[in-house]
């Protein structure tokens, strides 16, 4: 014990030099990470206990901001909108990407299949603002592509973004359009990682494709599904660009989301303290989602080992 301790303490000049060089390599990242990732969290927590408009120094008001959170109609509405948005986008993009990835991996192992994968991925690289702009024009009540199609079919035109009932789902459709390709790529890599002999054995045993999907593919993809659902929930919870460009929160407050509310409280009302309190709550929710995912992962692993 003491020998080892002494040996550890006696650092050779060469090792010491290596340590210093190593620190120099890490230093630039350390400075940037501290400045733009770590310090802001603590500042955010601090601001959330203050009244702050940047014109005068922050004024400590204790828990007042938090006390006013749950009575704020704008906030409770935006929270329920955000949850609704998550409940539309996450199941849709998860199921779509899973089905497409598994089908292409099993039945379309051709040039054509890989072309389809490439094409389905293309919306991923379109910026959210460009996507929102294009879909805004497609959703136009007069002459937008979708309403032209409805007219052609003899249906009445729909004001997709102008109606309270349809505005949020219409925004969600754009997110699904843009997100499916991304998750499909992750699922596809997962399916390709399943050993072929596992699937072969099932075929030999006479399992139908549907049985194979539910009894082999789906259980083996479970860790990936956890990851994709978590990434999806977190991504959808932070939706901002689409709402900002497509609806501006309207009509009424029907597409106000948590991220959009933080933006309006902070940068339109200049109420930085209150907005920070909302942001800290968002952080807590997202950390909880991460925690739930980690716990689920652990339980599954233990079941597997047992």
């Amino acid at each position: 014990m003491t020998v080892a301790g002494r040996a550890r303490r006696r650092v050779s000049p060469r090792t010491r030099r290596q340590i210093i060089i190593g620190l120099l390599y890490i230093l630039p990242s350390f400075v940037l990470m501290m400045t733009f990732n770590v310090i802001p969290i603590f500042l955010s927590a601090f601001f959330s206990f203050t009244k702050y408009n940047m014109a005068s120094p922050p004024e400590w008001i204790g828990l007042d901001n938090y006390a006013r959170l749950f009575t704020n109609r704008v906030l409770t509405e935006s929270l329920s909108n955000t949850v609704r948005y998550v409940l539309i986008t996450v199941p849709a993009q998860t199921v779509l990407s899973l089905l497409i990835a598994v089908f292409i991996a099993e039945h379309m192992k051709t040039r054509y299949g890989s072309l389809m994968r490439s094409v389905i991925f293309i919306p991923v690289i379109v910026s959210l603002i460009a996507s929102a702009t294009v879909w805004n024009i497609m959703y136009q009540p007069k002459g937008g592509l979708i309403n032209q199609l409805l007219e052609f079919l003899g249906a009445q035109p729909v004001n997709f973004l102008g109606k309270k009932a349809s505005a949020l789902p219409s925004v969600a459709v754009v997110a699904i359009w843009k997100g499916t390709g991304y998750y499909m790529v992750i699922y596809y890599a997962g399916v390709m990682n399943i050993p072929t002999d596992v699937r072969e054995a099932a075929i030999v045993d006479g399992a139908t494709p549907v049985q194979r999907f539910f009894h082999i593919t789906l259980p083996l993809l479970r860790p990936i599904t956890y990851m994709i659902v978590t990434l999806g929930i977190i991504g959808s919870f932070q939706v901002f660009d689409l709402v900002y460009k497509m609806t501006g929160g309207g009509p009424g407050r029907s597409t106000y989301t948590v991220a959009y509310v933080i933006y309006t409280f902070a940068f339109q009302d200049k109420n930085y303290g209150y907005a920070s309190a909302v942001a800290i709550c968002l952080l807590v929710v997202i950390l909880l989602i991460h925690l739930i995912q980690t716990v689920c992962f652990k339980e599954k692993d233990e079941v597997k080992q047992a």
């Binding site: 990732n37 933080i262 952080l283």
Partner: peptide
């Protein structure tokens, strides 16, 4: 794990 909106105001 930190969402962008949380560090937006301090930044």
């Amino acid at each position: 794990m930190i969402p962008g909106q949380v560090i937006l105001i301090p930044m």
